[in-house]
Design a protein around this nucleic acid. Structure first.
Lengths: 194, 194
DNA sequence: CGCACCATGTAATGCGTTACATGATTTT
DNA sequence: AAAATCATGTAACGCATTACATGGTGCG
């Protein structure tokens, strides 16, 4: 998948691996992320299979950089992937839910603490998904009119991220209440050791 | 992670790998899933590290089965994991959003079709997350009163899944509208090949 | 007759993370 | 003086998927 993310980003502009990482963190990072080391490896593979090409640009006072560009084969591969519709639902993996599911032995307080930590984190995240992100999409669209339609799609994905965090925050708040009502104050099974 | 999922399930009841797969698909499958082959391998590892133990039970007219049970060391490992609070947010990976982000070259109709397919799928999924799932949690809680508190947590995770699908459906509907308004009817860049 | 279910697993491969390694420049 | 940024990568490892292999029972 990362493969197509990189092809997609390169279809806008040739870039270095380092640079792609930053792009990704700021835009598509909401729904797809990757470590630098993996990005470099994937770029290498893409080059081996002829979907991207690269050249080294010397710089002064800074390390040389290798700039990748999408090839025609790469553009075809990207389009082919885009054209094949997704006919299943992504299975989700959520560690918090996994923990919560089995957390009864922890007892009330530990569970509530865990949920409060997550509530905090999600409220912080919420800030990133909101106005600033919307503004920066708008800014790009205003500056490059030929990207206006792309921007509609970017904005749609941003709103999905925003709705997701909003939903998660509401769920956390609600669950905090439910659990503090349902659980007794004493820890039920805790501390069998030492 | 699967490791803890299995320990968690086994902390309720000793079971076979085959059986665990079914349990997982029906309960925790909403937020964590695994293939059978991986379950078998993980169980083996868990046994090698002494967190579970197993014995083979012969059956008539059916293949023998290997029943796994959690050990004391396994219970400790599970509790240790539960006790360590999650202090980060799970990064999400969503292929649909990834595709959508780069889909402008597909043109209006192909994009709308893709979204409609997903809308269908999510509406089907929605049915699973609703009443039937809630009822079956309630049924277990009623039958085994000592699991009443566990059931509160199970229900919380179920509601999260439900809210998630609801949110996704609303977002898809909204996005369908936005795109059909913003995009022109003709396909902009499509079909450069053949 | 064929398919689904029960039940177990191996092998090959792919995807992704973490840790390691390097080294100059700019900011605090 | 220390930390962050720019810039690239390798190596080891772990987690997960897919395909393959086996074989009996029960149902339509």
């Amino acid at each position: 998948m990362l493969k197509y993310m990189l092809l997609g980003q390169l279809s806008y502009l040739p870039q270095t691996g380092y640079n792609l990482k930053q792009e990704i963190d700021q835009s598509t990072g909401f729904f797809w992320h990757a470590e630098l080391s993996q990005i470099y490896r994937t770029l290498k593979q893409l080059e081996e299979t002829g979907l991207v090409s690269s050249y080294v640009q010397a710089q002064e006072g800074r390390p040389d950089k290798r700039i990748y560009a999408i090839t025609e084969a790469g553009q075809r591969a990207l389009l082919d992937w885009l054209r094949a519709p997704l006919v299943e639902i992504e299975p989700v993996k959520d560690t918090l839910l996994l923990k919560l599911f089995f957390s009864r032995p922890l007892g009330k307080e530990a569970i509530l603490t865990q949920l409060r930590i997550q509530l905090d984190l999600h409220r912080q995240l919420r800030a990133l998904y909101g106005q600033p992100a919307a503004d920066s999409i708008r800014a790009v669209a205003d500056q490059y009119p030929h990207l206006a339609l792309d921007a509609v799609l970017w904005e749609a994905t941003r709103r999905c991220g925003e709705s997701y965090v909003d939903m998660y925050i509401r769920w956390l708040e609600e669950t905090l209440t439910v659990i503090s009502r349902a659980f007794p104050d004493s820890d039920p099974v805790l501390d069998e050791e030492e």
